[in-house]
Design a protein around this nucleic acid. Sequence first.
DNA 1: CGGTCCCTTGAAAACGTTCAAATATAGTGG
DNA 2: CCACTATATTTGAACGTTTTCAAGGGACCG
Lengths: 251, 251
Amino acid sequence: MSPGVRTSPVAAASRAEDSDSVEFCGTCAFSSACVSNGYNKTALRDLHVLIEHVGPFQAGEYLFREGDTFNAIAAVRAGVVKTAVTDSQGREQVLGFHLPGEVIGLNAIHANRYPCDAIALDTVTLCRFSFPQIATLASRLPGLQQHLFKLLSADIGKAAVLAGDFSADERMAAFILSLSRRYAARGYSAARLHLPMARADIANYLGLAAETVSRVLRRFQQDGLIVVDRRELEILDAARIGALAASVLRD
Amino acid sequence: MSPGVRTSPVAAASRAEDSDSVEFCGTCAFSSACVSNGYNKTALRDLHVLIEHVGPFQAGEYLFREGDTFNAIAAVRAGVVKTAVTDSQGREQVLGFHLPGEVIGLNAIHANRYPCDAIALDTVTLCRFSFPQIATLASRLPGLQQHLFKLLSADIGKAAVLAGDFSADERMAAFILSLSRRYAARGYSAARLHLPMARADIANYLGLAAETVSRVLRRFQQDGLIVVDRRELEILDAARIGALAASVLRD
DNA sequence: CGGTCCCTTGAAAACGTTCAAATATAGTGG
DNA sequence: CCACTATATTTGAACGTTTTCAAGGGACCG
């Protein structure tokens, strides 16, 4: 990204790359699939003009910070985004990881400010949607309004998944399987996946200690469930992983 | 409520009580405050016709069940509602408690089915809003659409609050303070409050054992933080409760 | 007054954490 | 290309908070 951009590239107005392009990228096409069925080209153009491609961001860069004024949601186009809050004592609490195709910023609508930080874990590019504009457009396109309601509704349930009292094994298995499924839904391999986040981030997200994550992964490998090497992970026994994760993922 | 109603009074179409009344109840007035400013009487009447007052429900009655077809959200008008899921082994997981003025069913939009059970903890009455109708109306009333977006967005954050690794004391203090604030926001006392749910429900919600809840409450009382007698609770030292809860509630 | 459910209390056990240290890896500059 | 440093991960052992197990009271309801 260009040097000199100092605060909240997502929150701040950003220039669109390839502003003369009239094609949707894959992510945009996904995000707008709801309106592309049965709507005219005017609607599609309306949607297109409020989309900006921003990035790339390098690992560690902040996409937005807690407290920044909210004015846009964003779909991850490439890379992985971590959302987290930091308390007064500087302790971080990881809220989630967002893979390509997934939307960030929905939890900022309520207070008109982002309630968490968003940090690139690797090289990230985004599709940025001005929220006031997309809300206005949603008034005219019932399909878009419905899509936004559903995106928001789905996020309510996701946040509650790890609230239960699950064992370290169950949490770890659910984490692996969730990543696998979400990658698979985007056309990546369901068996081999890359973990772009540190063990400490996984642990924090799952409510465990980093040492516990390390130990559980090692034991999973000893038991033939997975093969893990650094941040590359292969699922060998999806059935047993699924059995462990079932109580967490509810299926 | 009338006998013979067997399934999902919220999901199913229900008769409105006082159908000839043209006055909003307090909850309805609250829920529709967003549109009552600057909108004409036609809009208000449109909103009113899609509201149904349902109930009362007795303690233990199901307002809707997991898997029921979704077609309405509801605001609690009186009483307290517990939402929970039950896994394949029959173990219950409490997702939340909903006080008067709070909305239930928002997490059902995504899949068009309720993802959890809703159970009355005491005598409950509801304002039921047909979701297809309110969504249609929201297309014409930007203020209503914005209000719905904000309701949904706020719920995303609420669910994640207890995901962190907090001690039993911190969780319990946060629970007490959250109830106190939410009751106070509705005009009830912030210091004296009634707990309509069992200790086991509190424990389940907080990710603790019921015995731990009992012990923490007793110790809080020994330390002069609260007085608790059965399901009546008085906060004596709001400052220290607040200090304990701060890391959980983030303030 | 009996029954049931809810709550409380005590003691032992378990799971995961914390502390401490070794190992490995990636990044940096010579 | 290599040494060097900081960071990340792994591993071991002791500790601690919470859970589990077991039992005892107590309130509410018929």
